[in-house]
């Protein structure tokens, strides 16, 4: 069906064609930067490669990455611990939904990143402000998806379970929870994507780490600010961007694998 009027490509051509296009683009990019002598302002593939090798060798990238990832993980777990029970309760009890909806909707409408100034004011720039923003962003996908999951539970399954003798506890643990799980998991993937996107933004906004306070762990965002203002190393910047993209891809792929393992009854 694909390919319009042309013949389908052979397997080798399907790999080689895009690869060679990429190589040509990179090579002409490199040549253009060399020819125009714009190194330092415009990044070029060779420089990115070189910076990448250096930052990997001296461990800077790993340190920054682990700082950011740790905050994402804590924020994500916080979002799950608060968001899942709250969402389940809101979905199950109409009164609670009525009572909390205006507040939740209002809070959800405020972009996490808009909290940065307040967070800095309250928590300082040592990474806690960024953590706050991440947790804030992660909590809502959990609430929204968990509550929706409970509302969408197949009533016939509830009837079937009741007819088979299920009491309250069995109903909750062995019917409601498993039937809500796939949707909660989708919420988790959204939450993690949110968290990873907002950690970079938050760290960029928090800015260069305050030196000399041993406790502060700079993240990838802070490293980028420092690279921009202090080191002016555009090649390193591009390297960081690539790593950020790669990590978010890896996180989602990992979660998808976990989902397949944990929820084998869903055809993904």
């Amino acid at each position: 069906m694909t390919g319009g009027m042309t013949r389908p490509l052979s397997r080798r051509a399907r790999v080689l064609l895009p690869l060679s296009v990429l190589l040509v683009v990179l090579a002409s990019w490199e040549a253009a930067v060399q020819a125009t002598r714009t190194q330092g302002l415009v990044p070029h593939p060779g420089g990115v490669l070189w910076s990448g090798a250096q930052l990997t060798a001296n461990g800077v990238i790993f340190q920054a990455m682990s700082g950011s990832l740790a905050r994402v993980l804590i924020g994500f777990l916080f979002g799950a611990c608060v968001g899942i029970p709250l969402g389940l309760a809101v979905g199950a009890f109409g009164t609670l939904d009525r009572a909390l909806r205006p507040v939740l909707d209002a809070l959800r409408s405020i972009a996490p990143i808009a909290w940065i100034p307040m967070a800095i004011l309250w928590l300082g720039v040592r990474g806690n402000a960024a953590l706050f923003v991440v947790a804030y962003g992660a909590v809502f996908p959990f609430i929204v998806n968990s509550s929706q999951a409970v509302r969408q539970v197949d009533r016939r399954l509830l009837s079937a379970a009741r007819a088979l003798g299920a009491g309250r506890w069995v109903m909750l643990r062995s019917v409601l929870l498993p039937s809500a799980l796939p949707m909660i998991f989708t919420g988790a993937r959204i939450a993690l994507a949110f968290a990873w996107a907002s950690i970079i933004a938050a760290e960029l906004a928090v800015g260069i780490k305050v030196a000399g306070h041993g406790r502060s762990v700079a993240g990838i965002g802070q490293l980028m600010v420092e690279t921009l203002y202090v080191k002016r190393d555009v090649d390193a910047l591009v390297f960081y961007m690539l790593v950020v993209g790669l990590v978010s891809f890896a996180i989602d792929a990992g979660l998808r694998r976990v989902q397949e393992r944990l929820l084998p009854w869903k055809s993904h």
Partner: peptide, 15 residues
């Protein structure tokens, strides 16, 4: 449980 039920749409637990 003394009154068993079977539905047209199976209503099996997919998990």
């Amino acid at each position: 449980p003394a009154r068993g039920v079977m539905f047209q749409e199976y209503a099996l637990f997919p998990w």
